[in-house]
């Protein structure tokens, strides 16, 4: 009897260890790494329409930015995100901004407030609401702002070419020495792979829905 209990306990512990290990591995694998193919999405835009990457037939790639109305770092980068679209949309790399924040925690990130902000500031790019947060999760975005530069290959393959920060100076635009996103796009435009593919920056944690 005692022996059986020991064996059963042993088995249970093994199962528990395996289970914990499996979940850990799963967690590590969420989100894209450089070179992965990004999935398309269909999310509501501030203009009332839905937007997908597939809508952009002539695009060479995309600057996908997870951002929001409320994070001070997102606000610091807002004008730079607008400038990126002005500079690169015409060259085939438009900005697609996505707001994934849970509005029960951040009411100022609601579609209504997004419409207001994009109008007030004069966004020239779509500003999409990721209510289910599935797109942010699939990409592995953790914070705002969090940028993914995608390079289009063939008709509908979007390869992740750069992940992370926009540049190296959040507070003072005048102190920017390295423009990571611009450098990545310039490399792609001239047919090369970006030399810098990942740079980290501080940001606000995405407000995930409490399950």
């Amino acid at each position: 009897m005692k022996k059986n209990i020991i064996i059963i306990t042993g088995l249970l512990v093994t199962v528990a260890v395996l289970f914990v290990h499996a979940t850990e591995t799963l967690e590590e694998q969420t989100g894209y790494a450089i070179g992965d193919m990004a999935a398309d999405f269909s999310l509501p835009n501030v203009d009332g329409n839905k937007v997908s990457l597939a809508d952009y037939g002539t695009a060479k790639g995309f600057i996908v930015v997870f951002t929001c109305n409320t994070c001070p770092y997102a606000k610091l980068y807002e004008s730079r995100i607008m400038d990126l679209d002005k500079k690169y949309a015409s060259q085939g790399f438009p900005v697609i901004a996505i707001n994934p924040n849970d509005i029960s925690q951040k009411p100022e990130d609601s579609m209504e407030e997004m419409v207001k902000r994009s109008k007030d500031k004069g966004y020239t790019f779509p500003y999409l609401r990721d209510d289910s947060q599935k797109t942010a999760m699939a990409y592995g975005a953790t914070k705002t702002p969090h940028v993914y530069v995608l390079n289009k290959e063939g008709k509908s393959d979007y390869r992740v070419a750069y992940i992370g920060a926009i540049d190296d100076s959040p507070r003072e635009i005048a102190d920017v020495r390295e423009k990571y996103v611009e450098d990545a796009i310039e490399a792609l435009l001239s047919g090369n792979s970006p030399s810098v593919t990942e740079k980290r920056a501080i940001g606000c944690t995405i407000k995930w829905k409490e399950s």
């Binding site: 914070k143 992370g164 501080i202 940001g203 606000c204 944690t205």
Partner: peptide, 9 residues
């Protein structure tokens, strides 16, 4: 930490 993506807290 290598595991830190940069989000706070």
């Amino acid at each position: 930490s290598e595991d830190w993506t940069g989000a706070i807290p």
